[in-house]
Amino acid sequence: MTPTPAATEDPKRLAEFEARIARGDTIEPKDWMPEKYRRQLIRMMSQHAHSEVVGMLPEGNWITRAPSLRRKMSLLAKVQDEAGHGLYIYCGAETLGVDRHELVSQLLNGTAKYASIFNYPTLTWADIGAIGWLVDGAAIVNQTMLAKASYGPYARAMVRICKEENFHKRQGFEIMSLLSAGTPEQRAMAQDALDRWWWPSLMMFGPHDKDSPNSGELLRWGIKQKGNDELRQRFVNLTVGQAKAINLTIPDPKLRHDAETGNWAFGEIDWDEFWRVVKGDGQCNRERLTARRKAHADGAWVREAAEAHAAKRARLESVA
């Protein structure tokens, strides 16, 4: 994307646009939109697409070690779905006038972000369960809200993606549930995975609204419908009961039910850890980017061959 100087928008068009958002209209690719709206959407959609692609790595790590044929098939299907989501959202972002290759190069040169959670390592098979249950679970809470986003192509992508994510979450929960009811070693594996993935999952909703630089604008323009804290609370409320149902303990001594609000109150997130991982010092930040860069570099000759072949075919067809 060529950086556009912060445009001064025509106040009349901006007012009309904001009135449309307020009425709940859906904005479509050919509609007028403020430059900042376009840029925010490109940022969010590309981050989302990158997250799907990078997210294939920690889970892909366990495909060759999945413990049964059925689990291997489910995990293959899940990771395939994620690649599909990535592709689908990249295409959605292209409706905003940006090229997918440009977005990918921003990921590879480290200027674009992806979900920080994938910078944590998958150490045991239970991590595959925990990711499905918690990470996909948190993503669903977020994406259910995004399915009502004001930008049509993004909202529609989210509707479709949410359906598949629900399936992934069920699979993850089923893995955790079996482990928890399994041998003592399996049970310990499940609890350990919950201990390690719980807090990073809560961090997926982003900083407190008061510390979130983009939230205000995103809310005003209907790209987001709810704040980070409200969504995080919703996720906690949903998940506490699920953990109880499979006899696992959420690693938060401050977790308690607040009768007044009906919410599950929880302890403070370690924001130092959050910012450290966002800024590149999680255990796997370098590994994930290195893996993507290597795949891209190793695939260069393949992409060149495909282009060369297509050009040859086009020449032959134009002669014929």
């Binding site: 892909g60 060759t64 690649a83 893996a291 795949a295 190793d298 695939g299 260069a300 393949v302």
Partner: peptide, 27 residues
């Protein structure tokens, strides 16, 4: 399946995973 996440283009990650899934299913 070892290609998953490491393919030359995203479309091939999908295609190779899809074929892997067929083959494991047949097995």
């Amino acid at each position: 399946s070892e290609w998953c996440g490491h393919g030359p283009i995203l479309e091939e990650d999908i295609a190779l995973t899809n074929i892997a899934l067929d083959l494991v299913g047949e097995a």
